[in-house]
Design a protein around this nucleic acid. Structure first.
Lengths: 221, 221
DNA sequence: CGAACGGTTCAGCGTGGGTTAAGCTTGGGT
DNA sequence: ACCCAAGCTTAACCCACGCTGAACCGTTCG
């Protein structure tokens, strides 16, 4: 689960990023609209948090540019003023949700989760896959009813898989979503993570598709 | 564009409904949770607006009931109090968005539009050829309804064929598409792949045209 | 400061699956 | 009818992809 954060206030940006990372999101930060737009176009994110008041390029302009190119990325906008017109601008530009500063970090997380969940096509807040269940709202995994303790990376990998259960998730996709910044293809660390995951949830649940990636199944194979 | 409005306050309900109708939505109104739940399950809506404070059945309970049955309907909840916990409850129950009363009608409309826009566009274009089906979105083949396990090359070959079903696909064309770069004609590896494919999906489905290439048919020959 | 935790690197191994080769079948031309 | 080329099929081979255990750090705790 990888988020693009476009926010010029460095302090706020770091604060948000930390909170998100604590919730196992991977976060890339862009300090201005130009960078943000470029990153959003070139990298692969699950959602973006976009400040409307940005230097260089206005937030709404960034959003409009994305949408113009048919970019479907779920976007939550942050608006400083409580102004009604600004929200409208945001929505007109193609935003999916908004939040007015100041806001509670928890609310941002909630809304982000709802956004991602919705765009992944899961209306139901908890996804069940065999003995495994995932509460998309709280981000908690359970195995046979008892909470599952996962490390940050294990969690991200499993989330990616559970969001697209029963379909093959490409190796590189997984890399991009799990690792912040650029993903180096020259390592097998992902395989190690998968191995550890398998040991925790059962080897049958994660099916490997040679040359492509992995697939989460209900393990009833 | 049809909306289900579940709201016990008759005055407010009519006000909202009128505004929505002015924007060309079709609106059904339910005055309590029981009716609302029933309507939501039996009729077909593009989205629902759900008041959390309802008589008979609580709004969150309605929502939970829908989600439990795998109901994917996009839902926007209305919460009277500004309470943080109530929003969380709503999200946990599977809401996609919320609005706290009082709110501007225009904002409701905006959010509804955003909601519907996002939940649309999940159409799966799938090609069917006899007992074989191909989901172009996920890239999954199914035979008689059950997923078909293919290797990388088998998959590429079959994809080429299914994309041009009922027409002859030239041998060399196939080579070029399947083997990146230049294709050496000095090998029968393609034939081996085709043979393995035939064994998996039935020999009649892939017709060989001497001197040209292969043709995928529905196997009803 | 050391211990525990979590992520990465490395090396060794097993195996899936792509290729090759050999023998057989089919079809079309003369 | 005969023959040869095109294509089918089976079996063997072998490489590289992925799995795994262990060692190696960087961080975060007590």
């Amino acid at each position: 689960m990888k988020i693009l954060l476009v926010e010029d206030d460095g302090l706020l940006a770091r604060e948000i990023a930390n909170a998100l990372r604590q919730e196992n999101f991977a976060v890339d930060i862009a300090a201005d609209g130009e960078d943000g737009q470029h990153l959003g176009e070139t990298e692969s994110y699950d959602a973006a948090v976009l400040d409307l008041g940005l230097p260089k390029v206005a937030g709404a302009a960034v959003l409009r540019a994305w949408r113009k190119n048919g970019h479907q990325l779920p976007v939550l906008i942050l608006t400083a003023r409580d102004g009604w017109t600004e929200k409208v601008d945001g929505f007109k530009a193609g935003a999916d949700d908004y939040l007015t500063k100041p806001f509670r970090i928890e609310e941002l997380i909630m809304r982000l989760r709802a956004l991602v969940r919705r765009s992944a096509g899961h209306a139901a807040p908890t996804i069940i896959c065999g003995a495994l269940s995932f509460d998309a709202q709280t981000g908690v995994f359970e195995l046979d009813g008892l909470p599952l303790k996962l490390t940050a990376l294990e969690w991200r990998v499993l989330e990616c898989l559970v969001m697209r259960k029963d379909v093959v998730v490409d190796r590189l996709d997984l890399m991009e979503k799990v690792y912040e910044g650029d993903a180096g293809t020259d390592s097998n660390s992902l395989e190690v993570i998968v191995a550890r995951l398998r040991r925790k949830i059962g080897h049958e649940m994660i099916e490997t598709v040679r040359g492509r990636g992995y697939k989460l199944t209900d393990g009833a194979a």
